[in-house]
């Protein structure tokens, strides 16, 4: 199963903000974390992640700093700001509304029956 592109794009901001809320992080680690959390289903590209990080920085939701690791190698770390935390709370409220509504609908469908016709576990 592949998650649709639009859905990936829509959920990207709260996911990154959520991961950053855990502590500062950098691009590669964020990508790994997303991969882990979704069990490999969310396949983010670098072209999605880095411009998104830059946008969060531009909007003031995150701050970045260069730190040197392992000799000459430099790594750009991102840290969430207060504004970013507020945005995360707001996004979370919106997502809760959407998922709650969806859950209600799924449940209603389940009571009426036809959902059972859809095979679950299409992941495998």
């Amino acid at each position: 199963m592949k998650v649709a592109k639009d859905l990936v794009a829509a959920s990207a901001t709260p996911m990154v903000l959520g991961i950053l809320a855990d502590g500062e992080s950098y691009g590669y680690a964020i990508l790994r974390r997303i991969n882990e959390l979704s069990g490999g289903e969310l396949d983010w590209t670098e072209g999605l992640l880095y411009p998104l990080l830059h946008r969060l920085e531009r909007l003031g939701y995150a701050q970045s700093s260069w730190q040197s690791v392992a000799g000459e190698r430099r790594r750009k770390y991102y840290r969430i700001t207060d504004k970013g935390l507020a945005e995360l709370a707001e996004q979370r409220r919106q997502w809760d509304t959407v998922t709650d509504a969806l859950k209600e609908i799924w449940l209603g469908l389940g009571e009426r029956g036809p959902l059972t016709a859809i095979p679950l576990g299409c992941r495998a």
Partner: peptide, 16 residues
């Protein structure tokens, strides 16, 4: 894995 540079720069261009 990183994919084509064309696509990458297109995404960057959208932000910048």
């Amino acid at each position: 894995r990183m994919g084509s540079l064309d696509e990458l720069s297109r995404e960057f261009a959208r932000e910048h």
